Amino acid sequence: MADNVTNHYISSFFLVGVPGLQEFHSWIGIPVCLLLGLTLLGNSIIITTVKLEPSLHQPMYFFLCMLAVNDMGVATSPALKMLGIFWFDAHWIDFDACLVQMYFIHTLCIIESGLLVAMAFDRYVAICIPLQYTVILTTSVVIKMGLVCVARGVLMVLPCPLLIKRLPYCLKYIIDHAYCEHMAVVKLASANTHINRAYGISVALSVTILDLVLIATSYVKILQAVFRLSSQKARSKALGTCAAHVCAILVLYTPALFTFLTHRIGKNVPPSFHIIFASVYLLLPPTFNPLVYGVKTKQIRARIVRLFFPNKKITCES
């Protein structure tokens, strides 16, 4: 411990990994590595596919590329350190490196949520006011919406590491987690942390509630427009364009809600369960998104098939 204290302040933290399951760390690392590999491969294929196919140069697919880039960051930020812990016993992490990891994880999660809102707006315009789609969602507007999502995440999370830096860390240095999560780091401080806790929960609730309300509003409008269509085929086609986005929303918010509820009301839930579910929340959506968009979006599916099987004939059926 002497090497990790400077002037009686902690200079490094010890990440436990998954408490109670240390003997299984080497096995837990296998699915983590697999999910990371699938995330990087799947999202790279999505980006390459959209870049190579001129017919996919549309707002919906530009947002999908933004989501793919962000997903790779969301998965990589915790996974590399987790693999270091699980396979190489690299438990120690520098104080500042811990804050950087924490900052990127929470910033990228907020950006992810914002991009799903932008994609919901894209579907709203495409289905409810299709004649104005190209007028409203120009390339410059799409870029600005992406930048707003990034700026919101960057600015909202920035106070978290700054507030942590003002706290003294004198005695506790063991983080019962597999990565540097905000509240796990705050709890170790040797001082009053009410401001940190209040700000952290305020950001989490405000982002989640605002984004879910905006997404729900978009889909209420979409459903109203869809059910006004006279043709069953037209209704199915319109809803089909939203299927992948709805799946992405469910995959992101369901584990987030479950994790939040178990922390608040699941007092008897083992810590290992909390850590595993928190890790699933970060690693599963980035892996799942390219798979569901590849399967549910026929333009992407057709282009991927042509990319890997150039001689295969593609039908136009969805």
Score class of each variant (00 low, 15 high):
residue 23 E to V: 03
residue 111 I to N: 01
residue 95 F to V: 05
residue 306 R to G: 09
residue 8 H to C: 10
residue 291 L to Y: 07
residue 126 A to I: 01
residue 182 H to Y: 11
residue 26 S to Y: 06
residue 309 F to W: 09
residue 88 F to D: 12
residue 181 E to G: 06
residue 243 A to E: 04
residue 64 L to E: 08
residue 105 I to E: 01
residue 210 L to R: 14
residue 58 Q to F: 04
residue 97 A to F: 11
residue 225 A to H: 02
residue 302 A to Q: 07
residue 256 A to H: 06
residue 286 P to H: 01
residue 220 V to M: 02
residue 315 T to G: 10
residue 233 K to L: 07
residue 302 A to I: 02
residue 162 L to S: 03
residue 241 T to Q: 12
residue 220 V to N: 07
residue 82 M to W: 02
residue 80 L to G: 01
residue 249 I to W: 00
residue 42 G to K: 06
residue 152 R to P: 07
residue 187 K to T: 00
residue 132 Q to E: 10
residue 119 M to S: 08
residue 70 N to C: 13
residue 249 I to L: 08
residue 42 G to E: 03
residue 13 F to N: 11
residue 135 V to A: 15
residue 316 C to I: 02
residue 262 T to R: 09
residue 32 V to H: 05
residue 305 V to P: 03
residue 89 D to S: 10
residue 259 T to D: 00
residue 235 R to G: 12
residue 146 G to K: 01
residue 282 L to V: 13
residue 161 P to M: 06
residue 65 C to A: 11
residue 255 P to L: 10
residue 117 V to G: 10
residue 61 Y to Q: 09
residue 43 N to H: 04
residue 69 V to A: 14
residue 60 M to Q: 13
residue 42 G to A: 06
residue 184 A to Q: 11
residue 111 I to W: 03
residue 18 V to T: 05
residue 261 L to K: 02
residue 151 A to T: 03
residue 164 I to A: 04
residue 279 S to K: 07
residue 252 L to C: 15
residue 196 N to P: 10
residue 149 C to I: 03
residue 269 V to I: 09
residue 310 P to S: 07
residue 3 D to P: 02
residue 85 I to E: 09
residue 197 R to M: 14
residue 181 E to N: 00
residue 300 I to W: 06
residue 22 Q to A: 12
residue 6 T to K: 05
residue 51 K to W: 02
residue 271 P to I: 02
residue 129 I to W: 00
residue 174 I to A: 08
residue 114 G to T: 04
residue 146 G to Q: 02
residue 77 S to W: 06
residue 311 N to V: 07
residue 288 F to T: 15
residue 189 A to S: 00
residue 164 I to G: 01
residue 137 L to N: 09
residue 28 I to V: 14
residue 44 S to I: 01
residue 36 L to A: 12
residue 318 S to K: 14
residue 63 F to V: 10
residue 164 I to W: 00
residue 165 K to A: 12
residue 227 F to E: 12
residue 100 V to T: 05
residue 81 K to R: 13
residue 208 T to Y: 03
residue 59 P to L: 15
